[in-house]
Amino acid sequence: MNPYTLRNEDFIDRVDVICPKCQSRALVTGGKPHGSVAEQETHVKFTCVTCGYALFYKNTPSFAIYKNSSHTEKKLRPIFLNSPCDPFFAFNLWYKTDTTFGVIWAYNLKHLLIIEDYIADKLRERHNVDMQNNSIASRLPQWIKSAKNRSYLLKIIHKLKQHA
């Protein structure tokens, strides 16, 4: 998998989070990487198998965003992409930790492994892939890309993976 062609939102179909009720590992499932808001509302749900807490995205509050040409309010639910929380409920991510430089996070183990491979790669060749401003590689902060932080960050990721 290539961090120059993949985007963070390609991993929102299964997001590992911390349950806000019992602090155990829980799941947000059903996110569609390129889906409409309506599709997200229909499919996305949160489930904690430890305490039984469950929530559907369609049952979360919606907000008035704008009025259309007929002056009817358009209500949408927010989606928090490219931030260190789950995109739908804004719950804390399971794979998230503070570092000396900032927060490192991933939506799930597969996402974390892509980031780990990118950090570990000393050459970081694009292999004829055009620059994409929304790719994982372009969205990572400079302190993650810096070679001088490589071993430190790989140790932190190793600790995060032990929670898998």
Rank of each mutant, 00 (worst) to 15 (best):
F80I: 12
Y118C: 03
L93F: 05
I115C: 00
P78E: 05
L160W: 01
N59H: 14
I136T: 02
W143Q: 02
H127F: 14
Y66I: 10
R150H: 02
V103F: 08
S70G: 04
F88P: 00
G35V: 05
K110R: 07
A38S: 13
I156A: 09
P141R: 09
Y95H: 10
N128R: 10
N82Y: 08
Y107M: 03
I104F: 05
K45I: 15
I144A: 06
K161H: 00
F91P: 05
A120F: 03
F46W: 07
K161G: 00
Q40M: 15
T100Y: 13
R124N: 15
T72L: 14
T42I: 12
N108E: 06
L160Q: 04
N133I: 06
F80Q: 09
L123W: 03
W143C: 01
I79H: 02
G102T: 08
S135W: 01
S70V: 12
N92R: 13
K155V: 01
Y57V: 07
N108R: 09
K96E: 08
A90L: 10
F80H: 13
P61W: 03
T72C: 13
L76Q: 04
I157G: 00
N68G: 08
V129W: 04
S135G: 03
P141Q: 13
L113G: 01
Y152L: 03
E125A: 09
H158S: 08
Y95K: 05
I65W: 04
N59F: 06
T47W: 05
N108Q: 08
H163Q: 06
N128Q: 13
L154M: 05
I104Y: 04
T72M: 10
C48F: 07
R124P: 07
Y53S: 08
A38P: 03
E73H: 11
V49S: 14
D98S: 15
I79A: 11
Q40A: 13
L113D: 11
L93M: 07
D121A: 11
I79K: 10
R124C: 12
R126C: 03
R139V: 02
H71F: 10
L140S: 04
L109N: 12
C48W: 09
L55R: 11
H158T: 08
V103G: 06
Q142D: 13
G35F: 08
K58L: 05
K155D: 08
T60N: 04
K75Y: 07
K110Q: 05
K161W: 00
K159I: 01
L154R: 03
T50S: 13
F56P: 02
Q142H: 09
Y152A: 00
T99E: 07
N82G: 08
I156N: 06
K110L: 04
K58V: 07
K110F: 01
D86C: 06
L55Y: 01
D86L: 02
R77D: 06
F56Q: 12
D98F: 15
T97E: 15
L109R: 15
L154P: 00
N59T: 10
E116G: 02
V37G: 14
I144N: 03
I104V: 11
T50K: 12
I104T: 01
